[in-house]
Design a protein around this nucleic acid. Sequence first.
DNA 1: CCAATAGTGTCTGTGAGACATTATGTT
DNA 2: AACATAATGTCTCACAGACACTATTGG
Lengths: 232, 232
Amino acid sequence: MMEELPHRYAPVAVTVDVVALTIRDRRLQVLVAERDAGPYAGSRALPGGFIRPEEELAEAAVRELGARPAHLEQLASYGGPGRMRVLSVSYLAFVPHLPRPRAGAAWHPADDLPPLASDHARIVADGVERARAKLEYTPLASAFAGDTFTISELRQIYETVWGTRLHPGNFHRKVLSVPGFVEGTGATTRTGGVRGGPRARLYRAGDARLLHPPLLRPGSAGTAPDRSPGRW
Amino acid sequence: MMEELPHRYAPVAVTVDVVALTIRDRRLQVLVAERDAGPYAGSRALPGGFIRPEEELAEAAVRELGARPAHLEQLASYGGPGRMRVLSVSYLAFVPHLPRPRAGAAWHPADDLPPLASDHARIVADGVERARAKLEYTPLASAFAGDTFTISELRQIYETVWGTRLHPGNFHRKVLSVPGFVEGTGATTRTGGVRGGPRARLYRAGDARLLHPPLLRPGSAGTAPDRSPGRW
DNA sequence: CCAATAGTGTCTGTGAGACATTATGTT
DNA sequence: AACATAATGTCTCACAGACACTATTGG
């Protein structure tokens, strides 16, 4: 079925902006691009750009990111007259390791960002909060890790994204008790920790897509998933 | 700063489509509009239309809905080449009572919808799932009720949206134990239930915006095989 | 009287968190 | 030797769910 192009309505320019998160130096970091042209030239902004006629929204996000993330999901759309007829569809991406960012882009700590164009700072805040909530009830923390990882490495991911310390023993038992969260590889690390300790067992991501029961953020007051983008 | 209109990029037509939910006849119902013009004339679709230059996205959603909902939040955006350069930003609305739908629109049970245009059936599915999740950790169930309501009425809302039966006694105690969920009015219903029983106390929505601890859906918890014979 | 409902009490299993313990590594 | 870490065990508290029970209303 073909939808006729409604040219009698004022057209809108649609961009895709990506909140790409990784963990580097034990900090949650966001990919920030330098704008080399346009009215915001010289300033910084999220990686993004105008969508092309033949591509899906998610494809545009991957193209603007310049790499295939371990996880990608839509965040929200931001429009309104304050944006001069530019509608931004934002995406959240989890990127493992430290891929070298494409030219003109650099990682910045999520809690120490430079000034960003438009309302991108708010988009980042929405993305970080979404990421924190996602770790509670999905196994996506492993999207920040390599193919195999130890329970301690997984715990560090949680601690970094949530900004809290977690009890190592309880975390260990909890992760292994959730079906499908991780599965053992039979292997262990080649050496103990930097400061000693036995070799840790290596795990890979399991096949669960949701965690039952979830790993709840400590500090009982406070955390609830907020999937609603924008108050209106 | 002014953002220059990037006319060198192919423009896109942006619509806002609303998944409006209410509870009628103890069923979750969705507002469906008749399309009176355009390529889908005669078919049904979600209430929606093209955004206007001077309005916010949420304003457009309220305008297309034709009424101010008790709750409104953005759902997601749907684009891609399969939609012929029409990008749809969808919204989820909770509507209390049974306001008379505007001309050309009618309520349909969410689990028995007529064929809808484009991918609107999927948008409805996304909206219903979002609504179910929202009831778990927000007090928004009261958005389906009147100004005051009984605990039983609140429970019926949960049962209808979730499609499950809930234990009356446990639900009662749970709701009253969550701070800020409901607050008593001091009044009671004028009569008992249709089939008897004492007069129920009336409550109004409290000031909490999040429920902690949340009301979890039964069935989602408990990975172990269901050992309880009595199913509520 | 009978049935249905409002509201409360009580018990139990589960799980989170605090803390302890043992084994195994590194410096 | 000293210490950090991996992994597991134990205890307690909170809470969800099952179940019981009383009081109050309509038919």
